[in-house]
Structure formats: structure tokens, C-alpha cells
Amino acid sequence: MALNSINTNSGALIALQNLNQTNSELGVVQQRINTGKKVATAKDNGATWAIAKNQTAASQSLNSVKDSLQRGQSTIDVALASGDTVIDLLGKMKEKALAASDTSLNTASFKALQSDFHSLRDQIIKAVDNSKFNGVSIANGKTTKLTFLANADGDSFTVNAQTISLAGIGLTDGETFTDAAGAKGAITKIAGALQSATNKLASLGTSSAGLDAHLSFVGKLQDSLDAGVGNLVDADLAKESAKLQSLQTKQQLGVQALSIANSSTSSILSLFR
């Protein structure tokens, strides 16, 4: 038989313990709903929090890798654009040399074709000299290769430079012809330069495709890391919402139970009437 005492109310103590437990659980659920995370601090789950922080750091470091690879893409794209211009100009130079190889031309016509040839040659020099991104070129012969970040460990992705300047494709800065025979010889040289330029641009195109593929991989890797961290620390809000309503009901019942337990001692007063 339970002891009737005004000093110790066991029922009220038990009801208070249960209410405190419910309030504690309710606080946890409310925090998860507010933050969207089931593990927001090391206090929630030290091991999981540490893993999540390390993986988050790895994911964030990949932003630098992506930036580096994108700079590489831009550098190659500028070189390819310059190369397209060079090929177009070489085609026009070949056309002028072919026209100048016609022995029936008068002197004025020959001189005009020669002048056009020189102008096209000089345009190639300018196009290659200006093929820079962020002050760097892999087309003018001043750089042999460029390295970009490949992963968060600092490993590199190397792109070999391809010189498409006149010297790089077998011509000279003073390339010219002085007569029809010389113009005919220039046709052969320019044809060789065209072949060399296209081969070099094909190599740059392959490097660009490699950068694109690796950049796509890095993006997918970053997404996977972020998703993995989310699986570790994110709260299931649908589940937490249902739990919130359950705990709120439990809290109300706990308050009522505590009220009933506190009022039970008042019945002792009736013994003294």
C-alpha cells in the first residue's frame, strides 16, 4: 500500500521525470526542424559529425580544382580560336601565292598579291601573339606546358603547349616570294604549314576534351560527397514533423498527469475534517 505523505509525492516525481524527458525530446526535434539536420554539432553525434566535416572540407576544396580546370579550358579555347584564325589566314595566303604563280600577271597585279600575302602573314603573327588568357598562352611558343589541379590532393592535369606561330608551323616571320617561281614554292610551304597547324590544333582539341571530361567528373564527385554528407547529417523532416506532433500531445498529457499527481495530496486534508 502506498504511503500517504505530504513530504514526498512519488506520483508527482515520476510524472515530473516523464514530463522532463518529453520536453528534452521535444527540444531535440524542434532543433532538427529548425536546422534541418539531425547532427548539427559534435554534441549530437561526435563520430558522424567528424566524418561529415571532413567530407564537407573535401567537397569545398574541389571548388579550387574546378576553378583551375576552368582556367585551363579557357586557355585552350583561346588557343583554339587563334588556331582557327591561323588556318583561315594560311588558306588565304595559299590562295594569294597560287594567284601570284601565274606568269601572265603584270607587275602591278603581282605586287598587289605579294602585298596581300605579307598582310596575311603579319595577321598570323598578331593572332598568335594575342592568344593569351590571364597572361598565359600555349600557342605562341613561350610555354611548353601548363599544369592544372586535378584533385583535392594537389595532383596535376598537364596540357602540352602547341606552337602555332609561323616558326612553329614551318614558316618565317619574313615569309615572302619575289616572282612567280617563288610563289609556286610558297604554295608547297604553306600546304605543309596548314598540315602542321591542323595537327597541333587537333592535339589541343584532345586536351580540351580531356579537361572537359575531368571537370565533369569533379562536378559529379563533389555532388556525391555533398549527398553523402546529407545522408549523414540531414534530418528526415517528414519523420520529425510526425514526431513533433506526437511529443506535443505527450507533453500536454504529461502536464495533466503532473497536475493530477500534485492534487492527490490534497485528499489528506479530508482526514482532518
Rank of each mutant, 00 (worst) to 15 (best):
S259K: 14
Q55N: 06
T35Y: 02
S115W: 07
L221N: 02
Q73S: 05
S74M: 10
R121K: 15
T198C: 04
D236L: 12
A99Q: 13
T41L: 13
L166N: 08
K43N: 09
K92D: 01
T198I: 03
Q114S: 13
I169G: 01
S101P: 15
F148L: 06
V39G: 04
L221H: 02
V65L: 03
G170S: 06
A108C: 06
T163S: 10
D116N: 02
Q114G: 12
V218C: 00
I164W: 02
Q248E: 14
V128W: 00
S263Q: 11
S24Y: 14
A57Y: 11
Q55C: 00
I76C: 01
S119F: 14
Q256F: 12
V255W: 12
L232M: 15
D173K: 14
A139I: 06
S246V: 10
Q162F: 03
L89W: 10
R273Y: 13
S109Y: 02
F133M: 08
V136S: 01
T35C: 07
N18P: 00
G205D: 13
L215Q: 00
S156D: 05
G27K: 09
A227G: 04
G219V: 01
K250Y: 02
T103F: 04
L149A: 01
L201Y: 11
L105Q: 11
T41R: 10
K145M: 06
L271G: 15
S10T: 10
S5T: 10
I14M: 13
L149V: 02
N20Q: 13
D84Q: 14
T8K: 12
S241M: 11
A186N: 05
I124Q: 02
A150L: 03
G168N: 02
E25L: 13
S74Y: 08
L62D: 06
G174I: 03
F177R: 06
G91I: 04
T75D: 01
L201E: 11
G36E: 12
N20Y: 10
V218G: 00
K53H: 03
G192V: 05
Q256V: 05
L3D: 15
G168H: 08
V29R: 05
A209D: 11
T22H: 07
T103V: 09
G185F: 04
I6M: 14
